[in-house]
Simulated scan of single mutants.
Amino acid sequence: MICVLFAVLTALSNASASVLQRRAASEAPADGAFRLSLFAYLVRRRIWLAGIGMVAAAALFQATALATGPVALVQPIFIIELPLALLIAGLLFRVSLPPRTWVAVAAVTAGLAVALAAAAPSGGVDRASNQLWVLALIATGGFEAVLLVSAVRAHGEPRAALLGLAAACGYALTAALMKQAMASLADGPGAFFTTWQLYATAAAGVGSLFLLQNALQAGTLVASQPMLTIGDALISACYGGLLFAEDIRFGWWLAAQVLGLIAIAAGYIELARSPLASGQGVAPAEAEAGGESADRLERTTAS
């Protein structure tokens, strides 16, 4: 399916952008932090500009994937973004990945394949009614409120996990909004630029990025990353079914789906502990790049 191809290209582009931009930022003068001189330095770096180009490409690829396929199929494919970022970082920084990391990459990939094959997302429509959107937004608001209140009362790893799930919900909503905005293109540019989903996509994306940064600040990747990754996939499936009438197999197929999710979670926990994810095993000038590329560095265009 063409949507699968573009979803994979989105993950690859985002992973490449993370590594390229962080490599450029790690080489910037330390006295440029929080100053415009940092931006002035970066815009003269080809590697940073290449990263920006990959961000733009990822946005186009994701929009195309969502316009041509179910949300419940496209969003889970972005699970491979972290493994790709680590592999690319390893090549760029000339760091050999340990066997455990390779096993984790294989677990994530195999788990995703099993889960998607068992769920077999299909069908659906391109647009949801305003009534369904109202229900979805009310449910989302309530869910996010519970998560945020719980996160405020928690500390350390529990807070990171809760905020990671809140960010996942935001990214899943962003994807659903983007899908409907893209569908309005069929009615012409005027309809596209006047649909409320287009502007809600930007707002939801920025809010999700804010939640993610707080999750990363609150605790380790081991706590936030599995919640972010698996949460995005599961909540996207819910949006796909509620808003766009997408079909997912249940019954005995649920057992295979759960096994796939367990493999993904286990793989992500191991990846979050890898040398590149922690910034270890790389040169000092590259440590920040390797570590932050592994933080998945979610953008408003991703998931």
Rank of each mutant, 00 (worst) to 15 (best):
A89Y: 05
I262L: 10
V206W: 10
A191S: 15
F6A: 11
N14C: 14
R159I: 01
E286C: 07
L20I: 00
A11G: 05
A266M: 14
A285L: 00
W48P: 12
A256C: 01
A265Y: 04
A151W: 08
G205S: 06
F250I: 11
A154G: 09
L177H: 04
L147K: 15
Y239C: 06
L148F: 15
P275Q: 05
R23W: 11
R45T: 15
T194S: 15
R296D: 07
A63Q: 06
A40L: 05
A151T: 08
L271Q: 06
L92M: 14
F39M: 08
S224I: 04
C169Y: 03
Q180N: 02
L66R: 03
I47G: 09
T194R: 15
A113L: 02
R94Q: 03
L91G: 08
G251M: 10
A15W: 00
L97W: 04
G279Q: 03
P29C: 06
T140S: 12
L173K: 05
E286P: 01
P98Q: 06
L20M: 14
I269P: 06
A65H: 01
A175V: 12
R46T: 12
L132N: 00
L132I: 05
M178C: 15
A56R: 05
L91A: 15
A256E: 04
A237K: 01
Q131H: 07
A15D: 00
G279W: 06
A202I: 14
Q21D: 09
A233D: 02
A265T: 14
A277C: 06
R35P: 03
V146C: 13
T201Y: 09
A233Y: 05
F34L: 14
E292F: 12
L212M: 13
G207Y: 08
P76I: 14
T68V: 10
G281S: 02
T201Q: 11
E246C: 07
A256I: 07
L116W: 00
P76Y: 10
A223N: 04
P226T: 10
F193P: 11
A233C: 13
F93Y: 03
A139M: 04
I269K: 11
A119W: 01
S122E: 08
A7T: 11
